[in-house]
Design a protein around this nucleic acid. Structure first.
Lengths: 193, 193, 193, 193
DNA sequence: TATGAATGAGACTTCATTCAT
DNA sequence: GATGAATGAAGTCTCATTCAT
């Protein structure tokens, strides 16, 4: 799904993306120079412009490349059936799988999504919107009761996402997927009256 | 509470800080130019340098100015007595008070703290470290049971902090302090077997 | 002759001159900032402008202050009578006295005199012009013979001035005046057929 | 002779050096702006930094580029045999050849060598040190007698170097090499008892 | 007279981007 | 496609100078 390096010398474009992603996450986009990227990718600075319109465009393409399948998955989760807890479990599992697969990309997606350059249309599916929607439906159905949906949605999101930050900043050891059950346990308690 | 008046506050310095803080949060430090700052503060660009050594130093001073009292408070919370829940309630209340008081500064502190330029010594108190320490003590005392401390600490942190992000990104309406009871309710459930 | 510090706190103007002179010689005029000068003089930067129109004007006034009496002396030497050797001896003695009195000022005068900012009128007496004039007169009178005046003038000047550079750059120990006889001996040999 | 071609000489670098050298000598390094240099070299200001780390580095490289072969020559003169006068004649001839070849560069080397930015190691050969060493050897051998070596070394140096200043400041006409014999004549007289 | 905060022009330097090879 | 020298706009910072106190 996420492109892998084959035997023949990694395609130039991919090397640029890999180098840029790494650096963007480590230092921020503005603080990363095209010189840095070219250096790490082992190519000439000018070569970047054979593959991307501009540094901004590169940053955006990397984002979309990762976010589009992610957004598609969010939509699928929303449409899929099952109880709230079943649905949440599938989501947590999916999130943590992605996180474990490529931590750097995950951080990039999550950061950008909320960053100032993000021009996501208002109807783009985001974890926050998905969570709220599911929760509201569940309240309507009477599956869960007595919770203020907006705040609760944020709380559930925090329970799911903060452990990822914990791994990134070295507070807990990865991978995260094996912790799904523990996290779901916490979610279950919060949703229980 | 966070604000301090050291010297007779010649006003100019404060205007620079205010302008810079706003812009740093809105666009990021690297993307904010000294021109921007001077423009918003209504002063000449050179004037910045009569008050701060460099743009970097300005960013750092703003951080420390806000973080030092915050870190002190964290230490106080750690040393204070009471049950885990009592202590957590005080912390949540304090966090949300600060957040409501100056949302921008709060975001700046939280962002910088984990950012690449943060050179916080390893023993600086941080929310994450505080949470873990308190939880471990509580487990030792048998106050709570059957929880893996590191993951649980992150989960609790997520419950507390994510609502702040929710306010910042427009998912929930502030202020946050009135929501303390609801948030504590979620925490209580998570800590209950 | 050159002003000395009296008991009452050295007059501000003089402190500026002293500080500036020292720094101009040590680092060059362009590389010396008004901040440097104020710092060394123990005054505020703005105070410089109560006494001098500009940094350039300060540099120039220091030069003229020292050069005017010097130029007057050169004229006097030219007009005074005596054999070439007698006149040269008086000049060497005078030069070395000045040098020993205030090495820093001496270097400043000599450097400026030939520097790009020197706008000395073409008829201003300079060591080089004086030397040439005296030598030509002497040749005319038949006092010395068989020497090309322009080159010889430079050679004599070199004999006199280079020892001063030697002291400044630490090749020889000062003071210089006691070496007058030795220097005159060399001059005498050069002028003898 | 001084000029070296290391890389295929992409011309631009040389134009920068030429422009900078000219301006540094005419106005001093501090008073010369990168804008001046770029303007005279007919390139963009930024281009300077593709060839040199900084303005300071440029100034230093120009110096070393010229001084290294010069220092090598000084060492060779020191080691070569012959009487003092023979050796001095070779030196004068070499100095004046260099001077005639590129007056500007000569002035730059001589000025920098004694300037405040010069960080020449203490054992770097300089004209002054060479002269003193040769003179001392000669005195030891009994070739010359009755002279104080340090002062005499400076005097000889003055005889050789001052004529160069004379040409630079328009007191005598160049080229200087044809004047070698006259200068040597003066030196011979000074060294004769 | 002295101060020192403020200014604004301009210095040095960086960097995204272009283009001839 | 790839290169890397060159560009020029823009960024950070310095500094001579002004002016209200």
């Amino acid at each position: 799904m996420i492109t892998h390096v084959e035997k023949p010398a990694p395609k130039t474009r991919q090397r640029i993306v890999d180098a840029a992603l790494e650096l963007f996450v480590a230092q921020g986009i503005a603080a990363t120079t095209t010189r840095d990227i070219a250096g790490r990718a082992g190519i000439a600075e000018g070569t970047i412009y054979r593959h991307f319109e501009s540094k901004e465009a590169l940053a955006q393409e990397i984002f979309l490349e990762g976010y589009m399948p992610f957004a598609k998955a969010l939509t699928a989760f929303e449409r899929a059936g099952g109880t709230l807890l079943e649905r949440l479990e599938r989501i947590v599992d999916y999130f943590y799988s992605l996180f474990d697969l490529d931590q750097t990309r995950w951080v990039y997606l999550m950061t950008w999504q909320t960053g100032p350059q993000s021009k996501l249309p208002d109807d783009t599916p985001t974890p926050s919107r998905l969570m709220l929607k599911m929760l509201k439906e569940s309240l309507k159905k009477g599956e869960v009761k007595g919770l203020e949906p907006k705040l609760t949605a944020e709380i559930l999101l925090g329970i799911i996402l903060q452990p990822a930050d914990g791994v990134v900043y070295g507070q807990i050891a990865g991978p995260l997927r094996p912790r799904t059950a523990e996290v779901m346990q916490a979610i279950r308690k919060v949703l229980t009256p």
